[in-house]
Write a protein that binds this DNA or RNA. Structure first.
Lengths: 140, 140
DNA sequence: GTTCATGCAAATCGTTTGCACAATG
DNA sequence: CATTGTGCAAACGATTTGCATGAAC
């Protein structure tokens, strides 16, 4: 689980190489801006004027599958809603995607402590725990 | 900022009431499943066979705007990608939507401690700090 | 040469919006 | 009655996919 493993692109993957994917990875590695697919496409387009969004998405997806890059968000395209507006944290099952509330008090001071340590002015924080829910765990 | 304010629906809002929105809120309050708009629609459809997704989205949006329910996700429809696959946390600017990495060590033990306290088997956690980035703060 | 990746265009999916009509205050 | 909400359908934007061609091994 602790992916302290090699981060190198030429790691033991079954992916064939392509100049486009190589560049996509270089582009991602060369920025700290957590870009969108659109932005990556814009960058890639300078070198491959005929590249298509399909190629960008396919490659991003593959890089994510192989653990070479990360997708930020909830995975699913659709949003979820909840009536509990009190600050609280979530547990997300990586198997079935279900989301449950953590019945744990929120440490408000963590916002300030983390924010100060990181040098940003934060007003709140949210923690997401990831793992396998009891339901999925039961099914092996 | 700390919305410890009233949670009641009939709070001082300028919203007119509607039977559909009342039910949507009841549905959200009656589940712990963090449903999608689609799911809410399915529920609502039993009572309002002619209800449309447009109504569901409009009402969910309004309930969110009024702070009566919360939307989980990143707000933006599009995903973001990053090459940094080492576990780390993020700061999200609520003004411009920019995402930056927190240059703060990850407390791995928090996964276990939070997971145990909440009674779930978690393998990792991610913290998101929310606030206003330096850039936006400068612009007033 | 067989497999995988590409470009292109069309399709899909969640969400938003314009409009005429109905419900609310 | 002035305004807001509704249903319907069409529009939208991000992402995915089918297909014929081209690159990788």
């Amino acid at each position: 689980m602790s992916k302290t493993k090699t981060t190198r692109y030429d790691a033991p993957t079954k992916m064939r190489r392509s100049r486009q994917r190589d560049r996509i990875l270089e582009i991602l590695r060369g920025t700290k801006s957590h870009p969108t697919a659109e932005w990556v496409y814009g960058r890639l387009h300078r070198e491959f004027p005929h590249v298509s969004m399909g190629t960008v998405y396919r490659n991003l997806g593959q890089l994510v599958e192989h653990g070479i890059v990360k997708r930020i968000g909830f995975g699913s395209t659709f949003d979820r809603y909840e009536a509990n507006i009190l600050t609280h944290h979530h547990f997300v099952c990586e198997r079935c995607g279900s989301v449950t509330d953590l019945e744990v008090p929120v440490d408000e001071s963590l916002t300030r402590r983390l924010g100060e340590a990181a040098g940003v002015r934060a007003v709140r924080h949210e923690i997401r725990l990831y793992g396998t829910c009891a339901n999925c765990a039961r099914k092996g």
